[in-house]
Amino acid sequence: MTSSHGSGGPWSDLDRPPLNAASLRRALVLPDGLWTSLDVVTTTGSTNSDLAARADELPEGAVIVAEEQTEGRGRLDRSWIAPARSGIFLSVLLKPDVPVHRWGWLPLLTGVAAVTGLSKSAGVDLSLKWPNDLLVSVGGEERKTGGILAERAGEDAIVVGLGINVTLREDELPVPAAGSLLLANAISTDRDTLLRSVLRSLEHWYGEWVRADGDPAASGLQEAYTAGCATLGRRVRADLPGERMLEGDAVALDGDGRLVVATEGGGTEAVAAGDIVHLRAED
């Protein structure tokens, strides 16, 4: 019935209809809301790059969604490629009126918002891998189904990109550790519904955070991230800048959003950036 390698026309895969841009705008671009514009493009290199290039001319709340990204990026310059209309690939332009030193919470905030929105609309239990991955369970195995990339755009703006695998089948996964909402037995894979839910959740959490002047505790963000973070309480290996490696137990998230790792010698180290590997007990 379906084919992911059809003619390339908008209905080459009947399980993957295009997004309804007009309907999404009616639902999300509201007079007193955060979202000021919403554009759906058939294909682009990177929605983050597209928004960053126009950051000075666009107001806060601009949203770009791509049916397909040919140069999608994750952290550490990793690529993020998926079949057309198989996921949600979006970027939002934010210009937060909060102290810049708190902007590092935005990827974590986006993760909380995505997990909150998708848990309701897709009916799937998701968790967060610090600092920016969304995890689902596929056959009892932890799989990455989404990722977040935040990038500064000029002096006062930040572009936050979010990619979510929605209907990828097992034979379409880029790597064995990847997953999708479909493979996690989602009750809904309707991308319009999922996108509305994610953006409404992001608007809520961003509003709470800005009203609290970016304070992660006062806004409830730190507590929500901690509650949904699969990394905490686990043994981890952190591959740090400068080819340094740190291994220990992930015990907390500090006020700056850093992962606090308890090391063998009884001390702790706060990790601000790095590649985190969840280790099994036998590792």
Rank of each mutant, 00 (worst) to 15 (best):
S3G: 15
H5L: 13
S7G: 07
P10A: 15
D15M: 13
D15V: 01
P17M: 06
P18R: 06
N20H: 12
A21R: 03
W35P: 05
W35K: 11
S37N: 04
V41E: 01
T42S: 15
T47W: 07
S49Q: 14
R54P: 05
L58S: 03
A62P: 00
E67F: 08
E67Q: 10
T70K: 09
R73L: 06
G74T: 09
S79R: 15
S79L: 12
I81P: 11
S86R: 09
P96V: 03
P96M: 07
D97S: 13
P99D: 00
R102Q: 05
L106I: 12
L106A: 08
P107I: 09
L108W: 02
L108A: 09
G111R: 08
A113V: 05
V115A: 13
T116Y: 00
G117V: 09
S121K: 08
S121N: 01
S121L: 01
G123S: 06
L126H: 05
V136K: 06
V138E: 06
G139N: 03
G140C: 02
G140S: 08
E141W: 08
E141T: 11
G147I: 02
I148V: 04
I148R: 06
D156C: 13
D156H: 02
I158N: 09
V160F: 09
G161N: 02
L162Y: 03
G163C: 12
T167R: 14
L168C: 04
L168S: 01
E170M: 13
L173E: 03
V175C: 09
G179C: 09
S180Y: 11
S180R: 14
S180N: 09
A184Y: 00
I187P: 03
T189N: 10
D190R: 04
S197C: 13
L199S: 01
R200V: 05
R200Y: 05
R200C: 10
H204R: 15
H204W: 12
H204E: 15
Y206L: 09
E208W: 09
D213A: 13
A217I: 14
A218F: 05
A218S: 07
S219R: 01
G220C: 13
G220V: 08
G220I: 08
L221D: 07
Q222N: 12
Q222I: 02
Y225I: 02
A227S: 11
R234D: 00
R235G: 01
D239E: 15
L246P: 05
E247G: 11
A250P: 03
A250H: 00
V251R: 14
V251I: 14
D254R: 12
G255R: 13
L259G: 06
V260M: 06
E264R: 12
E264W: 07
G265F: 13
T268L: 08
E269T: 15
A270C: 04
A272D: 12
I276C: 11
V277I: 06
E282Y: 10
